[in-house]
Every structure is written in C-alpha cells, then in structure tokens.
Design a protein around this nucleic acid. Sequence first.
DNA 1: GGCATTTTGTTCGACTTAAGAACAAATTAC
DNA 2: GTAATTTGTTCTTAAGTCGAACAAAATGCC
Lengths: 406, 406
Amino acid sequence: MRRIDPQSFVRATRLTTRHINRQIVLNLVREHQPISRADLARKMRLARGRMTQIVSELVAQGEIYIGPTMQTARGRRPEMLFVRTRDRLVMAVDVRLSRTFLMLGDFAGSPIALESFETVRDPARLITEIARRVRAMLKKHDRAKSCEGIGLVIPGMVDQSSGRVLNSPQLGWKNVDVRDSLSRSTGLPVYIENAPIACALARMWLGEQGVAVPQNFVYVTVSDGVGTGVVVNGELVRGHSHTAGEFGHVPIALDGPVCLCGARGCLEAYTSNIATLSRYLGVEFSARSAHDLTRTSGLTVGDVVDRAKRGEQRAIRALEETGRYLGVGLAGIINVLNPGAIFIGGEVTEAWSILEPAIRAAITDRALTARAASTPIAAEPADSHPRLRGATALVSARAFAAPKIA
Amino acid sequence: MRRIDPQSFVRATRLTTRHINRQIVLNLVREHQPISRADLARKMRLARGRMTQIVSELVAQGEIYIGPTMQTARGRRPEMLFVRTRDRLVMAVDVRLSRTFLMLGDFAGSPIALESFETVRDPARLITEIARRVRAMLKKHDRAKSCEGIGLVIPGMVDQSSGRVLNSPQLGWKNVDVRDSLSRSTGLPVYIENAPIACALARMWLGEQGVAVPQNFVYVTVSDGVGTGVVVNGELVRGHSHTAGEFGHVPIALDGPVCLCGARGCLEAYTSNIATLSRYLGVEFSARSAHDLTRTSGLTVGDVVDRAKRGEQRAIRALEETGRYLGVGLAGIINVLNPGAIFIGGEVTEAWSILEPAIRAAITDRALTARAASTPIAAEPADSHPRLRGATALVSARAFAAPKIA
DNA sequence: GGCATTTTGTTCGACTTAAGAACAAATTAC
DNA sequence: GTAATTTGTTCTTAAGTCGAACAAAATGCC
C-alpha cells in the first residue's frame, strides 16, 4: 500500500497505459530474449493485436529489433525479438583516487574501448581532461552519433539531482560542480553517482548472466571507505536529502577506534581496507595514521589478500577478523531491511573463501530466522568492473525504467 | 529509476488511467479538504470536464461527498468536496501481553466505542472471544453494515500475506493461524500486522493534524522489544521474506549483554523497557532475569518515567542512558537510510524532555552531514493509541493506496 | 497432394475514454 | 442591465484498447 505524495505526483494521461505496457514489453524482451510476440502476449495476458502494435512502436523507436524466425514444433514460424543494445552506446567514467578510467561501451555493458589516465586533483582540469578524452574516443571509433550520454562515478558523497560533488575526502573536493560543465564540454547528457550506488545499479540493471537479482538487495563496497547501495522494491534508496548509503558509519561498538569521520566505533573503522591493513600490520587503526599507512609499510590490502591466498596465517587472520566485523554490520542490515541478497565488492573479496565463512558466521549468530541467516551473500568478481558498468547503467537504465505515476 | 520485476508486474488496461487519477483525486481531497473541483483540476492540471467525471464516480462509489458551497470573492460559488470517513467503520484490535483492546472507529481513526479484556493466552480461545466481542459491539451500535473490516495488531513476527503469527514470544505463540479463523467467525475481512509496522501505518495514513509526514521515515517502538516500521517512498519496507523491521537486534556493541534473542550487544538489550528498568535498579540486564524483573521489583518502566518526571536523579540518568543507546542505533539508521523523520513510541517517550536531548546528542556525534544530524525526531503522544489507529489504517488505507502497476 | 490443424502475426470494426471547447449557472462589479 | 469572473456541465471529437476475424506459414494425416 503505497501512499501517494500529494506534493509530488504524476497524473495519468491517455498515453499512460501504452507507456506502462511498452516498458513491460521492453523489460520482458530484455529478460527473455529472444522471444516472440505471441509468447510476450501470453506472459502479459494481452491480445496479440495489441502486442503487434506495441512491438511496432518499439521497433520504430529503435528500442528493439526483429531477428530471425525460430524453429518450432508446428505452425507458423515466430519472429524473435531482441533489445537493441549493441548500437546504443554510453561513455562510462570512473574517477578513482589515483587513476581515472574511461570506457566506451554498449547498453548491455560490453566494452568497446577502455583507457585510463592519472587522476588530476583539480576539478576543473580533471573535467577538461575527461571531456577531451571522451571526444577523442568517440571520434576514434566514429561513434559520436550513437553515444547517448556519460555516466560518471565519483568517490564520496554526490548529489545526483544537482550534479554536484558534495564531499569527496579522497579527491579533496567539496561542493564542486561536475555534471553541468562536463555536459557543456561534450554536448552529452551527464549522470553522476557515487561508487556504492553505481555498483548496485550495475547489479540491478546489467547483472550477471545466470544470477537472479531480487528486487530487494544491498550492495556493499569495501575500499578505503565502506558504503552501500540499498535497493527496495527495485529502486535505489536515496533518502530524504539523498545521503542514504553510509553503511560504513553504522556504529558497531560503543567505545571503538576513532573513525575518519570523527565518531567512535564505526563499522568502517573495523572493515575498510585501511583497517584491514592496520590489523595485518599490528598497528592500531587511527585517523592520524590512516593516510600514511601504505607509504610507511609499502603494502596495500591487495598484498594482504595475496599473502592470505598463499596461506600466510597472519594475513588470513586479519581478513577473517574483517569478515567478522563486516558480518556484524550486515546482520544489522539483515534484521532491519531483510534484503533478498547481499553483494560485496572490493579487493578483500578476492579472498572470498576466507572472508565469506567469517561473514556468514557473524550473521548466523545474530539473524532472527533461518531464512534471514541464509540470506545469499555473493562477491562481486573483481574483473567485472562494477563501477564502470554502474556508470553505464546510469545512462542505459533510463530506457528500461518503470514509468513514474501517482 | 525503478526496475520492473519480470516475475511480478501488473500490466495496464483501459481502466488504468482512470484508476490512477481517481486515487490521486481522492488523496488530494483527503489532504486539502474541503476543496472544490476547480481547485483540484488546477492542482492536477486536468480539464474541469474530466474532473467532474471523476468526482461523479467517486461520489457514486461513496468515497467522497459534496458538502456546502463556499464563499468566494466573486464568481459562482464552488461546491466543496470531502472524503467520506465518518460512516465507514473499522474494527481495530490490539492484542497485548495482558490486555486486548477493541475499538470501533471510523476511517479517520475517530473512536466510536472502546473496550478491553484480559488477554487469553490460548489462540483459539482468544480468537473466539475477539469474534464474540466484535459481533456484540457491532450489534450494539447497529453498525454491522458499515464495518469494512478488522485490523488486528499482534506483538511479535507476523506474516501479513498468509495471516499467520510466525512467532510471538510474549504470547507464547508460534505459527498460529489467526486471520482466517477470525474472518470466518465474523464474516469480515481481517488484516494482521505487528506493532511497529502498525504504528508506522498510523503515522503515514492517519497522521496528526499539522504534522507533515515525509514519504521516507522510520517509526521506532520501545517496549519489551524494540522494533521499527521503515517507510521508503511512501511504502512499508517488508523485505524479502517479510521480516524487516527488527531494529532491536541491530548490534551496537561487540561484547554487550546477551540479548533475549541469544546474540550479544543488540540494541534491544540496551534500550528496551526491561533494559531501562534493569538500569534503574542497578541490575545487570540478562535474559534470565528479564522475565522476573517486574515481579521481584514491583516496578515497571512507567514508574521509572514517573520518578524521572518528579526529578529523581537515578531515574533521570537511567532514561538518559537509554536515550544515548537509542541515539547510537538511530545514527546507524540515519546514515544508511537518511529518513525524513523518526517517530518514537512507547512509555519512555513520556519523559521526552529527558530522552530527546540524549538521543539527539548521540545522533549529532555520528551523523555525517548537518542535515542528517537534524533529522526531525518526534515522540508519539501516549494518548494517541498508535496501535489501535494502526489497526484502523490496516483497513482504511486500502481505499487510498496508489494503484500497483508495472 | 490436398485438406485439416496448429501457431503466429495482421487487420478491422466496435467500444470506451481522455481531451478540449463551448455552454450554462451563479456570483460580483460597474 | 450588462460585462466580467468563476464554477460546473455538456457535447463532440480524437485517440486508444479490445476482441474477433482473417491471413500467413508451418506440420500432420488420410
């Protein structure tokens, strides 16, 4: 029972019915392709005449295409429908601390070109460099006409509606305009998002072949920070002022280490890459030492993961402890939100066989039902580039989204 | 961008447009009543002819009525529209540990009759007694024809879709059929829900005059347990297997007291009424002593609240500490979900002037933005009977809900 | 081989409904 | 008394959904 917001509703028009059904058809084709009009009509309990009309429209608009007919037991051969993805392109941009990645890819997330360059810290100069490379890449592949927009992922807090970066401690940015200037420089629409939400979008819209994604799930990214994209009823939870998702700052201890945010006992202070590395090095996590740790030790969490995979006990124990704390935080999420699945991304997941049992045990200790205790938890494969795919989904998903009404 | 679930969608028909707009009208009348057709048409940017048609239908269906005309500066006097609530009734039932309450009330939650009786622990006998009293009350008020259903609130975990009580430790029930037998005994449709969710429904649908309710909020109930109703985009979050809302079992300490659920450091073990009473009595919270505390001490949390209100320092400190822990848990919720408001119900809120500053301070320490730190937090007035009003909303809200599509 | 059956996709006509313009009703202003 | 304003109704038209029939393309059967 959803409550209609009297301040913000969309009334229906004569176009609404058709729009809704068109989007349903589009999503059914996407899910089940190749599929015939007749099968679609059966799934939707819609007359075949109507289906022909809807499909004709979608074909005319370039959203789907009619492929070869299929062999069937008897009767007329059905024409099979496919969603057009291969010739609809997105420029995906992933800004990270040291490097910025650009990928030209299609609507399904398949890469056509990929490049990276050292991240420039000055916002204006970085935007200029990104714009230059976008234009060059599109020109090189002669695809300027097919590119429908730019998806831009930034570390930190972004305001998606205004297109500004509110606060990125990693980049040292605060209240920076990004979207509008990049849009002006490239002539393309730009959509901006933070990393955990982008990864959740990738999962939701460009998910893995053979892996069902529930309408309710949580995606956790573990890096120097720990964040989430929370999906409820198929939609990202952004919250009242769009600051939802700061999982790393859930308190799991009353008197824990001081977190980079200033509070005590934040999950992030126990589970971030910095925390794991501190644990491995036998150094107490502190905000003061966090910035120098890699430099003074010459190690990253990737090294810890490698050593654990080679059987080094200290590394294994460090990761197990990270997993336990992560499990504690996730148990809270499971008890409050009851997600259908949890996906975890970040370097630590490369030691999944070590991490997962620790996470699972902590969850089992605290879940209230057997079903909650067995909430599926999966690692994002490291080579799947979730952030770039999320940047792609920022643009492509708009074509597939449910209409907003009432 | 909501993703359409290919396993569970509702396609649009020729009726969809009208249905959507009708619900919008109904909700606008409810929000702004008394209001004229012309004003509604302006708010919806809809032609007056269409508005007349929609309103005629709603009047014919008995959802709204046309009241007296209103004085205006010039021009024809507009007829004012109202939502019919007074003659549409609900039987609300609130089953508590020691007493069960029945209220016959109208769609707006105004009570017509109220009674209670000692809760019978045997499920079958309780249902029989409830049914008997429902029938008697309806007969006494000659309202059997106007009553549209029964809303039933039960302490513990309920499965709203099957109508069963999964687990109620307070009542000692496990996997008990409730809805179907009560429905058979009364001939009325029955809707069942747990207490925190019911309270959130009351807030969302029968909220307080002059208090705006955002589309995203969290309602926390503090009693022997601590639970939440989480509302996202105007809709209750039930979760994948409908076990969302167990806020009391979010871990806020790694080595805390053992909770009634068996885990360590649950928020509930620090903030429930039992925990507050233990704190006041200087007794360590433990599962073993929890059940006897009231009997051996002769006190309840209500006594602690009374004493605090009278200035007793020990009571004040006990409540302040409860508030601090509650604030820690809520800081986590704020950081993950960014709700527009938080409502808190339960006896402890009667000492709101003591509790609120403690909650606020803990949140301020851990919130990441100034706006998050100033998330509005309000106490549910104790005399507002949120559970009974929630039981009412279980039935009445169906008439006002947004249509489910796509 | 021809006709019957099956299955897919198209076409056509009927009916319903959203939309917009004009009209009517009820008031104040001049 | 007429003009202007505002509300609510009526009427007509265009658009869109629905369902039945038709056509096309295949296999099955006698």
